[in-house]
Structures are given as C-alpha cells and as structure tokens.
Amino acid sequence: MLELRLVQGSLLKKVLDAIKDLVTDANFDCSESGFSLQAMDSSHVALVALLLRSDGFEHYRCDRNLSMGMNLTNMSKMLKCAGNDDIITIKADDGGDSVTFMFESPSQDKVSDFEMKLMDIDSEHLGIPETEYHAIVKMPSAEFARICRDLSTIGDTVVISVSKDGVKFSTSGDIGSANVVCRQNNSVDNKDNETVIEMNEPVSLTFALRYLNSFTKATTLSNTVTLSMSKELPVVVEYKIAEIGHIRFYLAPKIED
C-alpha cells in the first residue's frame, strides 16, 4: 500500500512539465526515503534524476518498495486536471496495475480521483558515481534559460567554459556567432540573483543546446540552477525543489573525434 499526500500539488505538475518531453515512459520508485525516478531520453544522451524526499510529504506511507511504470504523457494529462492550489495524493496497492491521483481543492469542497493504468517498463538504471567537479556554477535559473534560448537561435551547440573570469557560453552557426559571459556577482538583497562560481580547475565542454533547452522547462521549480562540470564528464544541471528534493539532468558532452 502506497499513499503519498503532497500539499503543494503544483510541484508535481511542474515536475511532469519539466520531464515529459525528454522522457516518454519511466518507472517511479517509491521507498521509505522518498519518491524518485531515473530515466534516460531515447538516444541515451540525457538523463533525468528526480527525488522527492518522504519528509517533504504531509503524509507518506510506503509499506514496501514499489516501482511503478508510467507513461509520462498520460500522467501529465491527468495532473493537468488538478488545480494549481490542489493537494495531490498518489495512491497504489502493492502489485496492483494502476495508480490513483486524488486532487483536493484547498477548501476541501471538491475532490477528484483519476486512475491511471501502470505499464511494464524495462528501464536501464545507471550507476552515477559521486564525483568531485572541477567547476560548479550557481546562477539564476531564468538567466540560464534565457541564455540557452538566445544561443539556440544562432547555433545548435554551446561551449560552456568556466575560468576565473566567469562562465562563458559560446555558440556559432550559419549567420554568425555569440558569446555570453556571466561574472561572479554578489547580491546583498537577494541570493537568488547571485552568480557564484566555485572553480578548482578551468573546464570547457560542448553540449547540444536542444537538450539544455529542454532542461530549462524546470525553471518554474527553482529560482536558481547549478551547473556542475568536469573535463570529459556529463554536466549536471540541478534544480532544487523547495524543502522536498531536486531534479537533476545529466547531459553527455560532445567530444572531438
């Protein structure tokens, strides 16, 4: 038996909006520690890892570990039927073939339940080693989204370079080229507006912009985003989900032949 009650149901709606275009089907894993998902896009270039910790739920009951295969397009259709202020409860029976999403309006005068069929998904779970990253950049998520969107009108790939001067995003295409440099700044009044660069070693990596643009659909989940990079390793683009967890996207770099 599984019963997870999330008061801020809009978070789950936003999570689905952030990942449904990258991944079609995924297993949601439920354990004592939380509600999580790890899934790759069909080309095995990008991976999303979601964690919603059990202590972030108002009520969290998971009698035994459960993996529930869901079609994210269908799940998103159902969650779109929840109001933004609704409380969402996820319910499932052990060994059952369906999951129920219950939506309660804040004043409790409307209660809906939507039952969705589960599916069997052969997912390839990857072991992601703990890594010391050469450079970690924390910046406003809206700024990162803006840069990715702007540069994708010029080129298909972006070179992200971190040096002591700042973080540089460069692209080029048929019509020309572009560079955006963000320097470290300290905002006294608002930490969310800060760009903070921790660098042990300069690092420069090339990525396909269309994936980064897809990741920025998570911008609504957090005011800040963290980019963690090491030479010849996938970048980690992390959005914290207030008080409850995170969504991390891993993107394999483009490497010179």
Binding site: V45, L47, A252, P253, I255
Partner: peptide, 14 residues
Amino acid sequence: KAKQSSLFTFFKKA
C-alpha cells in the same frame, strides 16, 4: 567536428 557521446560512455548500468 565534435561528436555526441552517450551516457553509457561515462556511467555503467546499475
């Protein structure tokens, strides 16, 4: 020209 790598190059199946 830079070639797109796969996640399998970096991460092993668990």
